[in-house]
Computed example of a mutant assay.
Amino acid sequence: MAIHTRYLANCSMLFTEVPLLERPRAAAAAGFDTIEFWWPWPDQPVPGDREVDAFVTAVEDSGARLAGLNFFAGDLAGPDCGVLSIPGRAQQFRDNIDVTIGIGERLGTGAFNALYGNRVDDATPQRQDELGLESLVIAAKAADAIGGTVLVEPVSGPKPYPLRTAADAVAVVDGAREAGGANVAFLLDLFHLANNGDDGDRAIAEHAAKVAHVQIADHPGRREPGTGRLDLQRQLDALERAGYTGYVGLEYQPSTTTEESLAWLPRARRAAADR
């Protein structure tokens, strides 16, 4: 991997050997000073204050910085993959915005991933796209109040998620920016692009200027780097040459334990600060 890369641990996929609230401390113990999470309550757009406080305290007590957090997106392990463009569920996303941004404000979080929403039978793609744009702009204005960025990413898998390629996601980013969401940007997930048959090298060459966050896993398999066929080092080097200085989230499924799966990344390179 590129020596200057600023890695962070995705604690929704790594350190799952321990309960969610123990993962920030586990990541810090493994050498990471920066982490990210999917939305911690997949069935609750608006969790209670006690639950939110417990999550914030767990991150604060770990000493790690929460750099990225997903908005509510439903149960990603189930049928859901985002709700913001679904007419019957977009209000859940909007109800969640203040909670997510509030956590971000307390923890100094700068990036908020807004998963788009599957296609549904009771609304046309045009209606969903209009609703998605409205939701993104509302979220972007809320995030802007704390200096945050809203991310849009392509996703792979069998769910009817419409953003599959870099071009799909960037088109949504461009539309949101034109509609007033200047702080909407592209989340480049190199695994998802490869899994969808999209060209990651081309995505970097054409869209690096719009990338505000990166996530990686090897392909096939979505395991740790070195287990598949992606030349992640070359791709991350290309991103750096294109001017990217942000974080690279380790969003993979460990082949064994999390700690064993990190053998490819020396402990001295796991801290993102001052790089």
Rank of each mutant, 00 (worst) to 15 (best):
S255D: 08
S156R: 11
I103H: 03
L193S: 09
E36W: 13
I97L: 14
G31H: 10
G78M: 11
L230P: 08
I103G: 05
I97R: 02
G48S: 08
P254T: 10
R6W: 07
L190I: 10
N118L: 11
V46D: 03
A67E: 10
L239D: 00
D75H: 13
W41V: 04
S62D: 10
E260H: 07
T57I: 07
G108F: 14
L107D: 04
A28M: 12
S62Y: 05
L163I: 10
Y161F: 14
W264T: 13
A273S: 15
D53G: 04
C11W: 06
T34N: 04
E60V: 04
G147D: 12
A167I: 00
A272G: 08
A58N: 03
K141F: 01
R234T: 15
P79C: 11
L115W: 10
V248K: 03
A169Y: 01
A139V: 11
G110C: 05
A217M: 09
G181V: 11
A2K: 11
R89E: 01
Y247N: 07
R223K: 14
G104I: 14
G200M: 13
T245K: 08
E134F: 05
F32N: 10
L107M: 04
R106N: 08
P79Y: 12
R65I: 04
A111S: 13
L8P: 04
S135F: 05
T16Q: 06
V137P: 00
Q128F: 02
F112A: 03
A242C: 03
A263K: 08
R23I: 00
H219D: 07
A185M: 01
S261D: 13
Q233C: 11
P87W: 09
R229N: 15
D61Y: 00
I86P: 02
G102W: 15
R6S: 06
P125V: 04
Q44S: 12
A194R: 02
A179C: 09
C81S: 10
L66E: 02
N96Y: 03
D43L: 15
D144S: 14
G200Y: 14
G132R: 02
T5Q: 03
D43N: 11
L190N: 02
T124P: 12
V172C: 04
C81A: 14
D144M: 06
V59E: 00
A176V: 02
H207K: 07
D274M: 12
D174M: 01
F72Q: 09
A28F: 08
D231L: 08
H4M: 12
T124L: 09
G197Q: 09
G48I: 10
R25P: 07
F71H: 01
A271K: 15
P220L: 13
G74F: 14
I101F: 12
W41D: 03
F93D: 02
R106S: 09
V173K: 00
I35A: 05
D43Q: 14
H192C: 01
V248S: 02
W39E: 13
E251A: 13
P220Y: 08
P225H: 07
L239H: 01
A73M: 15
N183L: 05
R106A: 14
D129H: 03
G249C: 06
V18Y: 01
R94W: 14
D98M: 07
T124H: 04
V248Y: 06
L236M: 04
F93I: 06
A143N: 09
G243S: 04
